[in-house]
Lab assay of single mutants.
Amino acid sequence: MTEYKLVVVGAGGVGKSALTIQLIQNHFVDEYDPTIEDSYRKQVVIDGETCLLDILDTAGQEEYSAMRDQYMRTGEGFLCVFAINNTKSFEDIHHYREQIKRVKDSEDVPMVLVGNKCDLPSRTVDTKQAQDLARSYGIPFIETSAKTRQGVDDAFYTLVREIRKHKEKMSKDGKKKKKKSKTKCVIM
Rank of each mutant, 00 (worst) to 15 (best):
M188R: 14
K165L: 05
K128A: 06
S136A: 13
I139A: 06
V152S: 07
T158K: 06
T127P: 05
E162T: 04
G138Y: 00
K128G: 06
K169R: 08
K178M: 07
K180D: 15
A146Y: 00
K167Q: 08
E168F: 06
V125F: 15
Y137E: 11
T144H: 01
L133K: 04
A155V: 10
H166C: 08
L133S: 04
V186G: 14
L159A: 02
R135I: 07
D154S: 09
Q131H: 03
K178E: 15
R164Q: 15
R164A: 13
S136W: 01
T127Q: 04
K176R: 05
S145R: 11
I187L: 14
K167D: 10
R149E: 11
R135H: 09
V160S: 03
G151F: 09
T148G: 10
K167E: 09
E168V: 03
L159Y: 00
K169F: 06
D154I: 05
K184P: 10
K178H: 11
D154H: 08
K165R: 08
R149G: 15
D132T: 04
I139V: 10
G138R: 02
R149M: 08
L159F: 00
K178R: 06
K165W: 00
E162I: 02
K165A: 10
Q131E: 14
S181F: 01
V152W: 15
R161L: 01
K182F: 02
K178Y: 10
D132M: 04
L133N: 04
Q129A: 12
S181T: 14
S145N: 14
T158N: 06
L133Y: 12
R135P: 02
K128Q: 06
I139E: 01
E162L: 04
L159E: 00
I142S: 02
L159Q: 00
H166Y: 12
D126T: 06
Y157M: 14
S181A: 09
K147E: 13
H166D: 10
A130V: 14
D153N: 10
D173K: 04
E162H: 03
T127G: 08
Q129L: 09
K178F: 07
D153Y: 11
A130D: 04
R149N: 05
K184W: 00
D154Y: 05
T158A: 12
V160L: 07
K128R: 06
S181P: 11
D154M: 08
I139P: 01
I187M: 15
R135L: 08
F156V: 11
L159W: 00
K177F: 02
F141T: 01
T183R: 11
K172G: 14
Q131L: 07
K175Y: 06
I139D: 02
G138A: 07
S145E: 15
E168R: 04
Y157K: 13
D154C: 07
G151T: 04
K169M: 09
D154F: 05
G174C: 02
K128M: 10
G151E: 10
V186F: 02
V152R: 07
D132Q: 05
T127E: 11
Y137K: 05
D126G: 11
M170Y: 03
V125E: 11
S145W: 04
K177L: 06
K165T: 08
K182I: 04
T144A: 01
R164C: 09
M188G: 15
Y157E: 14
G151I: 06
E162R: 03
V160R: 02
R135E: 09
D126S: 13
Y137Q: 06
S136Y: 04
K172H: 14
Q131G: 13
V186A: 15
Y137I: 12
K172R: 13
Y157F: 11
K175F: 04
A134Q: 01
D173I: 03
G151Q: 06
F141R: 01
D173R: 02
V186I: 07
Y157G: 13
A130P: 04
I139W: 02
V186N: 12
H166P: 01
A130E: 05
V125C: 05
D173W: 02
A134T: 03
Y157N: 12
T158R: 05
G174A: 05
Q150V: 06
D132P: 01
K177V: 04
D126A: 05
V125L: 10
S171G: 15
V152Y: 13
R164F: 15
T127V: 12
Q129N: 08
A134N: 02
K167M: 03
V152N: 07
L159C: 03
R135N: 09
P140F: 00
R164T: 14
Y137P: 01
A134G: 02
E143I: 03
K167S: 07
T158M: 08
V152K: 06
F156I: 12
V160A: 06
S136M: 09
S145I: 07
K169S: 10
A155F: 01
I142C: 06
R161W: 01
Q131T: 07
Q150A: 11
T183Q: 14
C185M: 13
K165E: 11
V186C: 03
S136E: 14
K169G: 09
K165D: 08
K167R: 08
K175I: 05
T144V: 09
V152M: 13
K167Y: 02
G138H: 04
I142G: 00
R161V: 03
M188S: 14
Q129E: 09
Y137C: 10
Y137V: 12
R164P: 00
L133D: 03
Y137W: 14
H166V: 10
S181W: 01
K172T: 15
V160N: 02
R164K: 15
L133V: 08
I142Y: 06
T127M: 11
A155K: 00
R164Y: 09
Y137G: 06
K165N: 11
Q131A: 11
V160M: 08
G138E: 05
D173F: 05
H166M: 14
C185V: 06
V125W: 12
K167P: 02
S145Y: 03
Y137F: 11
Q131R: 13
D153L: 12
A130M: 12
K165F: 04
I163W: 01
D154T: 10
A146L: 02
K176T: 15
I142H: 03
R164E: 15
V125G: 07
F141H: 01
A155E: 00
I187K: 13
Q129M: 10
Q129W: 14
Q129S: 11
K178T: 14
A130Y: 15
F156Q: 00
K169T: 13
D126M: 11
R149F: 09
I142P: 00
I163G: 00
R149L: 05
V186K: 01
I187S: 12
C185S: 14
A134E: 08
K177Y: 10
I142A: 06
T183F: 00
A130R: 04
A155M: 11
